[in-house]
Nucleic acid binder design. Structure first.
Lengths: 202, 202
DNA sequence: GTCTATACAAAGATAGAC
DNA sequence: GTCTATCTTTGTATAGAC
């Protein structure tokens, strides 16, 4: 869990990784100081370099984990040849909402860091993963006159964008943390219904 | 224009501001070095401090401009009591697409920096601007059983999210820069149609 | 493995000449 | 106003004791 404080029982190495995950995800690579990580881990700064050699190496490890968490979720769903289009959409939305409620900083972190370091997703081959997916085929079949990528981007946008805009939405006094979570729960039902209606539109 | 090189005729002060706008927007505050800005502006580092005192001050000026550009666009549209709901949506999408095609880094910049520095939009009162808008009234009237904020977030998400996810989408060999622009042009028509269908959904 | 102390590098800010 | 040179601060990494 990204948000929990490092447990007392964990090894120093694991405590550092936990703290790094948290601080990097919240502040981004450039704004993070290794001292912040050491402090949050409750260990000495020198120990961080003892275990991980450098800030960059530690970041690489964390980033790889977070990418897997973010993109790994979607892979099996979009490529399942046995599920219907509607079912796929339901699963994508529902899984992402649950996971992002636990890790609200994740999308902004991934998007921000990827901007600088564009080699990272070549490694994960996100492109093929989505472009050549079974989901794309099903979308093409249901609505041949619109590029299926439109729908993929839209469904992900409807699900993920609220988390990216969360700082803005929440500055509103009218929406506290529980209300935000409640809205996202509602979206598990709404987005699939909306998607269905959108795909019908000519 | 954020992307153009500082013109030869501009004053040093303006050249620095232009360069700062560009570099800050692209890399974010923490990852930006004042030396980068000076170099891109084609002036000496000392001059930057002569005009702007500090990195933070310079950033503040740039940030305020960019916030105004990002949020200023939407204010008059959502509060126009004489335009229909459909028309408002058309305008929001169309204006944002045009502006963001010229400033593709802007959304990620705003969202990233706002995360750390949450006082900035209190200044702009984005909340009231949206929450108490005429658009919200119209949405509530048209679909009373769903919180109007859902639709606002969705319409903005459908419009803005593609720019945030652009680095990922573009890693796909199948989508170059012109194709991305073409897709966004299509969205000027698609998003309003989709929104209309979404609002009808019960 | 873990700490203290410190070296080293990078980046922000300023002094002072022109 | 603009530059060169330099000071200061901050942050990463290492040496060496325990």
């Amino acid at each position: 869990m990204a948000k929990s404080k490092p447990s007392k029982t964990a090894s120093a190495e694991e405590k550092i990784k936990e703290a790094a995950r948290h601080v990097f995800t919240k502040k981004g690579y450039a704004a993070t100081r290794t001292r912040d990580i050491a402090e949050e881990a409750g260990i000495n700064l020198a120990l961080l370099n003892y275990y991980f050699r450098s800030k960059e190496k530690l970041f690489g490890i964390v980033m790889e984990e977070r990418m897997a968490q973010f993109f790994g979720l979607i892979t099996p769903i979009v490529n399942d040849v046995n599920s219907t289009l509607d079912r796929k959409i339901e699963l994508i939305v529902s899984y992402y909402v649950d996971m992002l409620l636990q890790n609200p900083d994740l999308p902004l972190f991934i998007m921000s860091e990827l901007r600088h370091d564009s080699d990272l997703f070549r490694k994960f081959q996100v492109q093929n993963l989505i472009i050549n997916s079974h989901l794309i085929l099903q979308l093409k079949e249901k609505q041949p006159s619109i590029h299926p990528l439109h729908f993929v981007v839209s469904i992900l946008g409807l699900t993920i964008f609220p988390f990216i805009a969360k700082p803005i939405i929440q500055s509103t006094d009218a929406l506290n943390s529980q209300m935000f979570a409640a809205m996202m729960e509602e979206r598990k039902k709404l987005v699939p219904k909306w998607a269905k209606a959108m795909i019908k539109v000519k």
